[in-house]
Design a protein around this nucleic acid. Sequence first.
DNA 1: CACTCCATTCAGAAACTATTGAAAAATAGG
DNA 2: CCTATTTTTCAATAGTTTCTGAATGGAGTG
Lengths: 167, 167
Amino acid sequence: MDSDELNRFIESWGSMGILWGINRSMARIHAFLLISEKPVDSEEISTSLNISRGNTSMCLKELRNWGVIQRVNISGDRRDFYTAEPDTWKMLYRIALGRKTREFDPALHALRHLLAETDTAESEKVHERLTQIEEILTTMDHFIDRFLENEEKSKTILGFFKNFAPR
Amino acid sequence: MDSDELNRFIESWGSMGILWGINRSMARIHAFLLISEKPVDSEEISTSLNISRGNTSMCLKELRNWGVIQRVNISGDRRDFYTAEPDTWKMLYRIALGRKTREFDPALHALRHLLAETDTAESEKVHERLTQIEEILTTMDHFIDRFLENEEKSKTILGFFKNFAPR
DNA sequence: CACTCCATTCAGAAACTATTGAAAAATAGG
DNA sequence: CCTATTTTTCAATAGTTTCTGAATGGAGTG
């Protein structure tokens, strides 16, 4: 494995973190764990990625909260070791669930409240526009819910997605 | 239309902006245009939302670049007026396209490079994990591409999404 | 219980992003 | 081509997030 490629992967995973709402250091650490064969300890992470011990510890804690990494014990060793969640699906829906709860849901709620209060007659155009957005967001909402329901369902959805892959 | 509800909508649309990678002011202005019956000028936006003229101007420019708002002329009036893109779908895929290009694509590229360089024998476990992620991201990539292709296709996909709505 | 080793916390520093407001540029009318 | 009005730019500032490293805590060991 070429170390340039490894670094490129770590860094671009770091940038993609924004998409999931995870900061750069967290995402880099996550990438590092993804490409580590064996569980690694915080010292190794810290020196390999040039992130201070303190920050490393905080990021690891956060990543554990997200459920995308696991802490493992190696008998005869006092240190804590970490490894990436082996179930990629589980990892992805934990990330998706977090974003949905924090950002998507409140906006959809506010939009519904607003629609409930809005008089159609008062402004036909605005009402229609908002209704359209509400419809789209609601549909996405159900879609994401299904995705999050459980592993089996998600696998179905992956198959589903695949209908759109180029023949 | 209740003004509390309007504000709640504006503010929560502002928070949801992070999801699209649009900053708070931009998203608030966008929300304001969404709920405005007639085109509004920058003065009105600025005073209604308490955003300086300068910042308002920059946000409007950005929003135009994103293609989610339009500038309109009102004859006999020197000022520029703005209105939200009336086609909600167009609006959504412009936003999605931006994020995909900026964050998703580079990460997928790096992952593929890495996989190409990785020897399966060297680390079975890592290789499998990365392959799994690559597969998922690729599928998502195609899915998003289809979504972005054109309006017709998107409408089909909306119907598709709906299969997952509760009966 | 004293020592060692590692993990965690947290206040301040650094880096980054968003916002302002004054100045400059553009536009239209006379 | 001058004036009035609106838009845009940009340097300075405010605000926010992330990161560091020293201090603190805690767990195992002799």
